[in-house]
């Protein structure tokens, strides 16, 4: 596996598009949280226990910062998905997936290392979110470091896996970058939300368990918690996690099966 990862490294090492997008992603994680921080700190009444009781403690204080930063950063998860789509569909458009197999990789090795890439991209995204949350937490006044609610970083990792996993699936199914990117964005931004809304209307709560929704719901809306929780009951975390694992297994099974049995 180390050898396979080294080959993947040689592929991206000098690939400028990949690094520019990665850098923009890291900057955006900081950016989106900074904007949120500014908005909430200017609009929040200063040191008002009444306000705290209604809208909750400041969201960038420990331990809530783990939750807040995970939630805000999850809006950027289409970028790791995009990176995954580019790295897979490049192989198809350059026909290097064929050449790699001709040169002596097995089909299984080729698709397995792409799946490992999914995990690596998700892990690095999560690491960036962890560091960003840590930074904001430490910078926030009157905040004492705590690992309480660190599970949200773990949920973010599952969510990142899910987004990049779907991205890999779409790449393997559609093979061409244009259509894979188009369908991915449409699905992430519009289709799934539409579907989830419709399903939730007719069958109670079932829409929460759609592929990406199930992981989106792991990290609920972090602001005005005391108000929100009176109106919305989030689905049980355990069920969401089970759904996420089943979906991930399904993506990987389909990708592997398709790549191993199709004409390349």
């Amino acid at each position: 596996m180390i050898k396979l990862l080294k080959i993947e490294w040689l592929k991206v090492k000098n690939y400028r598009t990949f690094w520019i997008l990665s850098a923009l992603f890291l900057i955006s994680i900081y950016g989106i949280n900074y904007i949120t921080y500014e908005v909430q700190s200017t609009s929040r009444p200063k040191a008002n226990p009444m306000a705290d009781a209604i809208i909750g403690t400041p969201p960038f204080q420990f331990p809530d910062v783990w939750h807040t930063v995970s939630y805000m950063s999850s809006f950027l998860l289409f970028i790791p998905g995009l990176l995954m789509i580019i790295s897979m569909t490049n192989e198809y458009s350059f026909k290097t997936h064929r050449q790699n197999v001709i040169d002596g990789l097995s089909r299984t090795q080729f698709i397995m290392v792409k799946m490992v890439n999914v995990a690596i991209i998700a892990f690095i995204s999560t690491l960036a979110v962890f560091l960003t949350a840590l930074g904001f937490g430490l910078a926030e006044g009157a905040s004492y470091f705590s690992f309480e609610k660190i599970e949200y970083i773990g949920y973010f990792f599952i969510q990142a896996l899910s987004y990049t996993g779907v991205a890999l699936l779409f790449s393997v199914l559609f093979k061409r970058s244009g259509i894979a990117i188009g369908v991915f964005f449409l699905y992430v931004v519009v289709l799934e939300n539409l579907l989830a809304g419709l399903l939730n209307r007719y069958v109670y709560g079932i829409g929460h368990y759609l592929p990406l929704e199930s992981t989106d719901n792991l990290i609920p809306f972090p602001f005005f918690r005391n108000v929100v929780k009176q109106f919305v009951t989030p689905p049980p975390t355990l069920y969401l996690l089970i759904a996420a694992v089943i979906y991930l297994a399904a993506y990987f099974f389909v990708c592997r099966r398709k790549f191993e049995t199709d004409d390349l």
Binding site: I7, Y15, T96, Q99, D103, G104
Partner: peptide, 24 residues
């Protein structure tokens, strides 16, 4: 086979490094 299949954004030498790595 059929057409030369290489990573367009890599140099000739880096492309061969990938092939050499695969072949061991």
């Amino acid at each position: 086979l059929e057409t030369p299949n290489f990573y367009h954004y890599l140099s000739g030498e880096n492309n061969l490094r990938i092939a050499a790595e695969i072949k061991g």
